[in-house]
């Protein structure tokens, strides 16, 4: 008997997009930790298969899934970490050259205190440098929603920084 539940060909997904997931993980974790996280993400992919809407390419879905998993994992780790912490050479990323004060506050500790969706938006904006429109498209929300959430994040960052601009 079969069901209509969505299925993912894990082997094919891994073969075609495992490197994408690994690269994204390396944005948050050192090389020696990445394989463990990689397997967790693919385990999570099976679990969350029903959230894959069958787009032509699973790139955005996997990218979001990996980002959420890494943030949740980092949040729950016993050792406090900054998202800007050095994770070794990641030559395919292009760092934001001049992080603003609010970006620094967010990446240092604020990301851990805000709700998971807001943390995700902050990472896409401050760490990845994505536009508000692109973030909205990735998350399936409007650009206005992203803008409002970023304003909220900015206010929190300003408060955390002691009101300095």
């Amino acid at each position: 008997m079969t069901t209509a539940a969505p299925t993912l060909d894990l082997s094919a997904l891994y073969k075609e997009h495992g490197r994408l997931v690994l690269r994204r993980i390396r944005r948050f974790y050192r090389a020696e930790q990445a394989p463990d996280v990689l397997h967790e993400v693919f385990a999570r992919a099976i679990e969350k298969a029903d959230t894959y809407r069958g787009e032509a390419s699973p790139i955005a879905w996997l990218y979001g899934l990996t980002t959420r998993h890494c943030l949740a994992r980092l949040r729950d780790e016993r050792r406090r970490r900054e998202l800007l912490e050095e994770v070794g050479e990641v030559p395919w990323t292009c760092p934001i050259t001049e992080p603003t004060t609010e970006a620094r506050v967010f990446l240092a500790e604020l990301w851990r205190r805000v709700d998971p969706e807001l943390a995700q938006i902050g990472v896409y904006y401050y760490l990845d440098g994505m536009s508000q429109a692109d973030i909205g498209e990735l998350l399936g929300v409007t650009g206005r929603t992203v803008s409002n959430r970023l304003q909220q994040l900015s206010d929190l960052a300003r408060d955390a920084a002691g009101g300095s601009p």
Partner: peptide, 11 residues
């Protein structure tokens, strides 16, 4: 897919 500095985002 472009950042403010003009380079590609990781995605």
């Amino acid at each position: 897919g472009l950042r403010e500095d003009g380079h590609l985002t990781d995605l």
